[in-house]
Nucleic acid binder design. Sequence first.
RNA 1: GCGGAUAUGGCGGAAUUGGCAGACGCACUAGACUUAGGAUCUAGCGCCGCAAGGUGUGGAGGUUCGAGUCCUCUUAUCCGCACCA
Length: 785
Amino acid sequence: MEALYAARQDSSGPKYYALVEFPYPSGQGLHVGHLRPYTALDVIARKRRMEGYNVLFPMGWDAFGLPTENYAIQTGIHPKDVTRTNIANFKKQLSMMGYSFDWGREIDTTDPNYYKWTQWIFLKLFEAGLAYKKETPINFCTSCKVGLANEEVVGGVCERCGGKVVRRTKNQWMLKITEYAERLITDLDMVNYPERVKASQLNWIGKSTGAQVSFSLANGQDSIDVFTTRPDTLYGASYMVLSPEHPLIEKYIGQISNASQVEAYQLEASKKSDFERSEVSDGKTGVRLEGFDAINPVSHETIPIFISDYVLMSYGTGAIMAVPGHDDRDYEFAKAFNLPIIEVVSGGNLEESAFTDTEKGVIVNSPLINGLSVDEAKAKMTAHLEDKGIGQAKVNYRLRDWVFSRQRYWGEPIPLVWCEACGWVPIPEAELPLLLPELSSFQPGEDGESPLHNLPEWFNTTCPKCGHPALRETDTMPQWAGSSWYFLRYTDPSNNESPASPKALDYWMNVDWYNGGMEHTTLHLLYSRFWHKFLFDIGVVPTPEPYDKRTSHGMILGPDNQKMSKSRGNVINPDDVVKAYGTDTLRTYVMFMGDFEKTAIWSEDGVRGAKRFLDRVWAASELVVAGNGYSKKLEANFHNTIKKVGDDCEVLKFNTAIATLMKLLNDIYEAKSLTQHDYKTFLALLSPFAPHLAEELWMDQGFKGYACESAWPQYDPDKTLGDDIEIPVQINGKLRDKVIVAKDATDEEVKLAVWESEAVIRALEGKTVTNEIYIGSKIYNIVAK
RNA sequence: GCGGAUAUGGCGGAAUUGGCAGACGCACUAGACUUAGGAUCUAGCGCCGCAAGGUGUGGAGGUUCGAGUCCUCUUAUCCGCACCA
């Protein structure tokens, strides 16, 4: 059976690449949450095969990662063995579900033949200057003992384990995803993603356009750069605020008369966790740097400088110009410190609040730009700043570079060597893969060092460049590394010369349809787009974007309307459901349970409903009579169903596709018989959802070959309407009757039929008809007073 | 605060370009059959009403022959981001 699902090697015929996110093979096994996306794309893959496409529908294992390592720490079992066991279990469960994966292309991110190329891509990034090591404040999970990317911190806790996250300074490998920020935005136009996914990515990248402006210090010795989106309000900048960590404070601390007060505030701010810092607080705190002022570059007024923790070192320049009249936070700060509020955009009431409306305002009190609109003033002021050499147009992004190293064992070793003389040196390509060494204890050091740090025989090496003693990098890559390019490997999974051959990539890329969870929108989805763009730039892949179409499924909640979790005891195990009801019932139920994109609640009664439907499909074989054509009574019904099931699957409406099949089955029972031809059509339509049942009945009927290899049924648009049609008749928009007329009845004939209706005549008693509207074969509305 | 979405029976959910609101399933009610079952079959099932009929898609307006669908305002819930300058 499996060979049926293998993608053809010959690159013949139109291709279709359907992809689902490969699972992390956890010890808990397959979760019902996996079933929704996997079943949905299995349905699509099966339908595409029946439509004649050469389909690639692969599966693999995203097997590096923390839970396995933590399990190894607890039990002493090697992560490699844990992974092997878990994969075997997952594979058994996926097979049980009848998914038509092409197992001949299975990949595993922990396989050296795979991670060889993950390391190779990293080296290319390094050579291109996109990987760099930096002493950087990182998010450190106190429970996993590991540094996290910003994307992995959710609500101040670790995205994976929920542990407390603190700030730590650590020398980390970073990837310059920010260099691709603009293209990650603009190229969203090239792809078909849901609006919510695009919006999330745009939001995450957080582009803002404005100007960088230089403020001279009153001491004449230096200047402070700020970023602003409102250069039009520069005349209203009546003070400045620096982040407590701003380096200038350190430099000029001697000139600040209240230095001790300033240092006390700095200490206070440093104690707050990053999460507390970014929480919107009610009041604004801060300290003025006494005796240390700046000069507004256009009004030339001397203005005070403050430090406050509402200014973040990590965004912009770590310093702002404050325009209390036209920024809510500055307004609040100015009120708290009794600072003057200057109106430079008229239209609001500064007694009450800052005026931030950029549409309606007109510039005032600003000699260079008075009378202009906000937009005009922005442009003119920016030009002025550039002219005088004190500022320029500037774009800022919220996106930060990607913290790429982890102080853990179970990940891809970073293939670099530190040499005192040569710096960081990549290991030669011929030495890839750099194997993860065997280890007996996986405990990370309390100081947060990688377990590989305990292996001098491994990390002591020689410099590939100069031959002197050198040290291997002991950090490993994050779990996101392996999944950032895995879709490429499926096209050519055992290639030993490149990640995948150009020929295979030319034929199979892009992924035509990629379904995955919303939780990966700003993580995996963004990271893999970044890597793909880089690989495109260096000529490895033929396209600038990896995925043509992305869809996202909703979560499945437990029967108690709560998120499934072991502690709540509301977890549904697919094995149990299959045992009790069978694979096809589970597949059908999961597709029928609700809108694919929305959250759905598990209902065992619903599962029974799906079972009842399939039992009735089986029992309908009793009604089959010989015949090559459609049963007359059911012909229009079949043409409609073929159209609806086909169309619905394409737009993720699996629930209504199944409902249509249920309705047709009800009508078959009402008709009391159907031809063999009809039954065959029905089984073909059902086969993507319930493949086992469909094949069995297919064989019972003596049909040739397999249902899954038969041609997807075709419909005739002219036959979707029966010979007679029913026209609803409304009077003043209210339904009064329905009349039945021939499909090709003329307007006159319809009118006659309507006026023969007793219900219509009764309803019109004592009224005057003023208008009659007939919308061809749809509705007849009489307007009467 | 910004961005995205959602709101329809007892429940999950349907409803092409504005055109029969509640498809399909579940639950429930009544009945049939019986090997008494978590089985199957038949009928019913938005709300009010015996009925005729009225009424009904979070709320208030509007456009239209006709609005769950379009427009304006509003309320609630969920998700993402958030002192981002």
